[in-house]
């Protein structure tokens, strides 16, 4: 399960479960508030919400798109 890893005290930062009301539709779970970062960390992370922070891991220099 995606994670609570960035949030304190195992707070799950989204509604669970989602109950679909129809086929042929995409659903994004509503965010649920857990905590926010401090001033500097918010700006540097690009979000105040730990649950939404998903930093990019740079690809290997010798490899355009292989994920290594």
């Amino acid at each position: 399960m995606y994670s609570a890893k960035n949030c304190p005290s195992n707070c799950i930062p989204y509604q669970t479960p989602i109950e679909p009301s129809s086929l042929s539709r995409a659903y994004v779970p509503f965010q649920i508030y857990c905590s926010i970062y401090g001033e500097k960390q918010s700006l540097l992370s690009g979000t105040v919400f730990p649950g939404l922070y998903k930093p990019y891991v740079k690809k290997n220099e010798n490899c355009g798109n292989c994920g290594k």
Binding site: G46, T47, L52, P55
Partner: peptide
């Protein structure tokens, strides 16, 4: 990196 993270939040 900041701009990339904003895309995730906007999504």
């Amino acid at each position: 990196k900041f701009l990339r993270e904003r895309e995730i939040v906007h999504f």
